[in-house]
Each structure stands twice: as C-alpha cells, then as structure tokens.
Amino acid sequence: MFEHKNASVHLSWRITVPYQHIMVPIDLEHADRMGKAIDTARALAKQFRAKLTFVGVTSEVPGPSAHNPAEFEKKMAAFAQESATELPEGASSKTYVVHDPTAQIDGILLDAVKEIGADLVVMASHIPNVMNAIWPSHGGKVASHADVSVFVVR
C-alpha cells in the first residue's frame, strides 16, 4: 500500500481511479506462463478493492486443458478460487464456449468486457498459441475498441 502524508490526496485519488472490476483473460493451457499478469491483476484488485474475473475461452472439442466444456468451466472456477486468497472482493471465473476459438477469441473478449461490466482489463502481452497469433490485431483491438483501460503486461 502506498503511504500518503495527506489524507485528502488519498481520498481524491480513490475517487478518480475507481477500478471496481478487473477482467483477466487467461489461457488455462499456459496458465503457468501467465504469472506476471495474474500477480499484477491481483495486486491491483487488492489495491482498489476491485472484483477480479478470470475469463477463459474454449471450444467444445477436447483440448489439452479439459475433456469437455463442463470440465473446463470447473477448472476455471478452481483457478479463480486459488487466486482469490487475500483478495477483499474475491475472484470469479467466466467461461465462453465457442465453435472456433482461434477465429472468435478477440470478439469474445471484447464482448466479455461489456458483459461482465469490467472497467479494467489486465492481460499478458504474450500468451502462446491462440492469443499470440492474433495478438497484434487483438491487442490493438482490445485497446482501441474496448471502452475501458487495458493493462498489457510484458
């Protein structure tokens, strides 16, 4: 926590930067490589007493992370549970099941921002596979099309 000598500064700061709901897109398959983004998101959530929502996108076809969408959703929930420790507002998860993740992920993430009402997106700049292939356009897309702040963790 920051130390503030002047309480009024602290107050105005809290009012002008109100992140209440942080969305973190994650790739369960490569969750191990996303530690930095997740740590950043958790720190911010703690700081601003914001809710944290992990968003995962999967297809109906069995993949490395789960045999089926229900199992994927379960793993997402467990992942959120693990990450929720010490967070004042806790963490939850949201799973999107789409026909073709490679093609749909960018649109889905933008929809997710609106749907869950997030006011900040924290995402790894480099998520292998699906994400990085579309990253150049996708990063630009989220940053320019999303109405909210986007924090890209490198």
Binding site: T53, N68, A70, K74, A77, A80, S93, V97, V98
Partner: peptide
Amino acid sequence: NNEMEPDDQPEVEPIPEP
C-alpha cells in the same frame, strides 16, 4: 460432471448446461 458452483456473476450465456 457436477453442476458448477455459480459465480457471484449472474450467468447469462453461452455456457451450456452441465
């Protein structure tokens, strides 16, 4: 495959039923 514990978010769609 047990029913998921719903998040504090109201689940709208497109998560299929268990």
